[in-house]
């Protein structure tokens, strides 16, 4: 027990360095969530639309991104594809955000699609009968109701992104995971730095879960009133 405490004392100067990695982690998750959200809306509209080619493409896209490991996709995007097209200087953080965003878009599209399907068909009919065109109807009438229904599921997706973003340590992004490894190597001591990162991940996920719960409760209140 004593050498564990000494361990934490030894790495103490590096603890802020590890903890600050959470901003890199959250930055990647947030960037990816924004890309994923926009992409998810586009894909879901393609899926429910009447144009067969687009819905086929959207379904294939979803199938591929959900059917392969994220770490594989990341390796492909960071190591394999740049080499293939002769790109030398790929920024790992940008690459990570884009890859996570593309991946998240596949999952988000399914969430959003189910949310749109859950909106009363009468809402489409009422808007159409008023002469409202497809795009304004989707933007102003259907999606706001759909997104309200699926906000909890989207919050979960964001939490998943936050946790999965630890994978970016494999392409040398200095997120919280990577920093804990760096500090471990520096002091040649694994437990204290990794434990700090471990706890920090858990705290952040707890906070995000609580925020999600609050939003959910607030929305259900406005439903009743």
């Amino acid at each position: 027990m004593e050498h564990v405490i000494t361990g934490f004392k030894t790495i103490a100067p590096s603890i802020p360095y590890i903890i600050n990695g959470i901003w890199v982690t959250l930055g990647i998750a947030l960037g990816a969530a924004i890309i994923g959200f926009v992409l998810g809306i586009l894909l879901s509209l393609c899926k429910i639309g009447k144009i067969k080619l687009l819905s086929g493409i959207a379904r294939a896209y979803t199938s591929i991104f959900r059917g392969t490991p994220l770490i594989m996709q990341l390796a492909l995007a960071y190591f394999a594809i740049p080499q293939l097209i002769g790109l030398n200087d790929v920024n790992p953080t940008t690459c990570a955000i884009v890859t996570f965003g593309l991946n998240s878009g596949a999952y988000m599209s399914e969430i959003i699609r189910s949310g749109i399907n859950a909106v009363d068909k009468g809402q489409f009919e009422a808007a159409s009968a008023l002469g409202v065109g497809y795009w304004p109807m989707m933007r102003d009438i259907i999606l706001p109701q759909a997104i309200k229904n699926i906000l909890p599921a989207m919050m979960n997706e964001f939490i998943t992104l936050t946790k999965d973003s630890a994978i970016v340590s494999t392409i040398a992004v200095t997120d919280m995971m990577r920093r804990s490894q760096i500090v471990s190597a520096e002091y040649y001591m694994y437990f204290p730095p990794m434990f700090v990162a471990f706890i920090m991940y858990y705290i952040v996920v707890l906070i995000l879960t609580a925020v999600g719960g609050r939003i959910e409760r607030r929305l259900s209140r406005s439903d009743q009133s």
Binding site: G122, E125, A126, A129, L130
Partner: peptide
């Protein structure tokens, strides 16, 4: 459709 208003059995107001 702008010329034709419609009222539904279940109202379909925008909630």
């Amino acid at each position: 459709r702008e010329k034709v208003g419609m009222v539904f059995q279940h109202f379909h107001l925008f909630p």
